[in-house]
Amino acid sequence: MNFIEARKLIHEYIRRDEEENVESILTALDGVDLDVKQGEFVAVLGHNGSGKSTLAKHLNLLLHPSGGTLWVDGKNTQEADSLWDIRQNVGMVFQNPDNQIIASVVEEDVAFGPENIGIPTSEIWGRVERSLKSVGMIQYRQHSPNKLSGGQKQRVAIAGVMAMEPKCIVLDEPTAMLDPNGRKEVLDAVVRLNQEKGVTVILITHYMEEVIRADKVYVMDHGKVVMQGVPRAIFSQVDALKSYRLDVPQITLLAHELHEAGLPIPDGILTRQELVEALCQLY
């Protein structure tokens, strides 16, 4: 069985007026199927309001589905007693770095998760050290989070999740509030965790550049999965992506435009190097 399996997942936000009458229903997830294997790097793309954040919050049971089924790590999320088990195994990193750091010292924040699940003191120290090292923040262990840059804060947040030794981390637009350098720092840390520690990664984002390194990409629109496949296959469908309010990396777009203009360039060019090679072969 896959690490995460969702079948026809539905989530409705129901707004009620003062007399508890249903005022409006917003279907944020509309029959989503999702399969994530252990150790995979999966990206979920979508514009703001496409339902991708709602999906992320289901994966560690911050939200419960209105319909459909979701298995995480072989457990049905409908069963109440699997809640803490799943939360421990599926860590979650949110968009705003400031609003997820609890303690006033970096190492104490990283210890927050292990403290909650009752890890003995001596082991907490080891975990804090290992997870701060894994995101390259060990030299800041004594610092106040307020003095760190956005990228550094977000890496502390990732370390805080890693200290719980989860099998999977879900990152809900972790780079949306960061500058380009911060974005790169965070993404590199995530890719490293995936490749070196074998952590399953689910990255929710609207930056196309960030999903190039993923094993599999899901594209969401209006609560539905509208495209899925390897990055190259996704990026070869430039017009479809545009219709879902997304855009493709500048190089891919250029390759697509050149193709439209009559140059026989292959579909799904992702990097500058690939485009240079393709053009050299044609010339």
């Binding site: 560690n60 911050l62 939360r87 979650m92 949110f94 609003n99 210890a111 292990p114 909650n116």
Partner: peptide
């Protein structure tokens, strides 16, 4: 946001908590 982040990190009150 913070409440959600704490919940996601398994915070469930002082019971059974250890300390760094």
């Amino acid at each position: 946001d913070l409440a959600m982040a704490m919940e996601a990190r398994c915070y469930h009150g002082g019971e059974g908590r250890t300390k760094m």
